[in-house]
Amino acid sequence: MAPVKEIVLDRLNGKITYPKTFIDKEHRTIDFDSLHVYRTLTTSGDFAITGEKIYIKDRKYNYTWTLETNECLEYWSLYVWYMEKNRPLPPDTAFDEYREKDFERRKTEGFPKPLYPSNIPTPEATKEQQAVRRKIGGW
């Protein structure tokens, strides 16, 4: 009875589409940059920490949805890494067939600096590509 709910991440346009609610008749699409994200810990009746949730708030429509899994921080990190169109695609086999085309797109754009700051190194798929990025983009 419950419909499938999917979050659609549009890397090139910086948009995210999230599932419709009971009130809305359609999915909502907003800028990824406009989201506000909150991390909370869940507790039991005796205040023992039992897990964590990520709340994602869309201020434009005053709507909040929850990313609730045992690995919510890992999921959110993947979303942010994927949405960072100036960095290489995240390290997963699901993206392997798109890596070369994505590299060429970023090369054509001159390897612009990343949109979101990060302390996590994001090297290219190969050492040769990494050298090209350093030479052209300087980072």
Rank of each mutant, 00 (worst) to 15 (best):
R87M: 13
I23V: 07
T93W: 01
Y116P: 14
E128N: 09
Q129H: 07
D31K: 13
W76G: 04
K127I: 15
R106S: 04
P19G: 10
K101P: 00
D24W: 01
R28W: 11
D96S: 00
G138Y: 04
F95W: 13
F111E: 08
Y63R: 03
E52N: 11
N62H: 13
E26Y: 10
R11N: 02
D33L: 14
D102R: 15
S118M: 08
I54K: 03
F47H: 05
I23T: 00
R59W: 09
Y61K: 00
L9F: 08
K60N: 12
V132E: 12
A48Y: 13
G45M: 07
C72Y: 12
S34L: 08
K20D: 05
Y55I: 02
L73D: 15
F47W: 10
K5Y: 08
T64Y: 00
R87P: 07
T108D: 13
L35R: 01
K15T: 04
E84R: 14
N62Q: 07
P90S: 10
P112H: 03
N86I: 02
N119S: 15
E52C: 07
T42A: 10
A131K: 08
T17E: 05
P117A: 11
N86P: 01
G138K: 05
D102N: 15
P112C: 05
L78K: 11
L78Y: 12
S77E: 12
R11D: 01
I16R: 07
P90M: 02
V132W: 03
R87I: 08
N13T: 15
W76K: 02
T42D: 10
K5H: 14
F111D: 08
I16V: 12
K5T: 14
N62K: 11
G51M: 00
I56L: 06
E109S: 12
L35E: 03
S44N: 14
L115W: 09
K135M: 10
K85F: 10
D10Q: 09
L115T: 09
K135L: 06
W81T: 09
T69Q: 06
R105F: 14
Y63G: 02
R11M: 07
A94L: 13
W139M: 06
K20C: 07
T29G: 03
S77R: 08
Y75I: 15
H27C: 04
F22M: 15
V37L: 02
R28F: 12
M83W: 11
R105W: 09
E124R: 05
E26S: 09
K60E: 14
D96R: 00
S118K: 10
I54M: 03
T64F: 02
E74N: 13
P123C: 00
E74F: 15
K135G: 01
V132M: 05
E68L: 04
N119P: 14
T93S: 14
Y98R: 00
E104M: 04
E124M: 06
